[in-house]
Design a protein around this nucleic acid. Structure first.
Lengths: 186, 186
DNA sequence: AAAGCCATGTAACCAGTTACATGATTCT
DNA sequence: AGAATCATGTAACTGGTTACATGGCTTT
């Protein structure tokens, strides 16, 4: 059995509800959008492999309006595998900020381009912040209905805090850069 | 010519000073540690390829105490290539928070493990925060000596803000989780 | 009519990691 | 004596993306 994160995302999601590959993609794209991503190119082969290893089972459901749905359910063995992984220490976070790679070489380009990168970063983070706030509001009233909502809520809060800090940084350095550019020119 | 980020990290660093592959690794590991990483497995083949494409040149320097050093210098064509890339919009940020992947499935495991993951996340971020503050203090007095220091400084500030927000989040949710665990038990 | 969603999947590619190989010097 | 640093590099592997292929249903 392969021991990559894609495997455990699928097991984790299926530990709550039986789902199709398509459902999984949507689920990751919403509740995990801030901190994880999976493509179909990972999802479908991983499902196949999990089934082969008896960590999940498949039910083929005929769908009158559209293609056949393949609904996957976690097995006892699958749940055990998930729990074994859950207690192991997590690897450290990986970040790829391409815009910082451009900004750190900002002395090699006119100031306007650096400002553009910062503006765009700010916009991306404002969007994320709004999404996180919306998720937060949606979850608040139902948080006591299921223990699993509570943990989703905690992860949403981190996304909210970090995107907020990012927007604040962008506002600050935009001001700093404007003053700096004037100083350098004079 | 390949158009991956590793290429531009090397060009960007070499646009400031001629360097060896080893120097580049160290440089990335300090000033970019928060938001980027490169392994020798990427650096050496990329240097070779950049040289073949005449974006950098190599000088082999005999080193009395140790192996031969190969010092690379950026060419005019290399600088142009870098500048072309600098003005193009950056791709959106990519994050991989493995611990959130474990926390979001926190209902599947005893509370103590969730708290462990949060504690460890907090510790990682406290370390980063301290590093960023140290960089900030080191840069402040020399920031007017070179335009390039200024941009490094801006990137350091983002690392500082985000790791600070992360530590604060950890403190908050630890308290929340402790209360929540007591409620659920009662 | 066109765009977008539902739903499946594969193949080729690109990015990035890890383990290995080599070996001298310097610090503790 | 042993660990760390200096310094080079490759090969095999794993992780992850993108483009392609198919095709019906629903919304604008």
């Amino acid at each position: 059995m392969k021991d990559n994160n894609a495997t455990y995302v699928l097991l984790g999601l299926l530990s709550h509800n039986p789902m199709t590959g398509y459902d999984i993609k949507k689920s990751v794209g919403t509740r995990m959008s801030y901190f994880w991503d999976l493509s179909y190119g990972q999802i479908y082969p991983t499902l196949k492999q999990l089934e082969k290893n008896k960590l999940i089972t498949k039910q083929v459901k005929n769908n009158p309006n559209g293609p056949t749905r393949k609904v996957y359910t976690i097995t006892e063995a699958g749940n055990k595998e998930l729990q074994t992984w859950l207690v192991k220490p997590a690897k450290k976070e990986v970040h790829k900020y391409e815009f910082l790679l451009k900004l750190i070489f900002g002395d090699q380009t006119p100031a306007e381009f650096n400002q553009k990168h910062i503006e765009e970063f700010k916009e991306r983070n404002q969007k994320i912040l709004q999404t996180m706030i919306a998720f937060e509001e949606n979850l608040k009233p139902i948080i006591d209905q299921s223990e699993s909502y509570y943990y989703v809520f905690l992860t949403i809060l981190l996304g909210k805090n970090i995107s907020k800090a990012s927007v604040e940084w962008a506002d600050n350095v935009m001001k700093m850069l404007q003053e700096h550019t004037m100083e350098v020119k004079s």
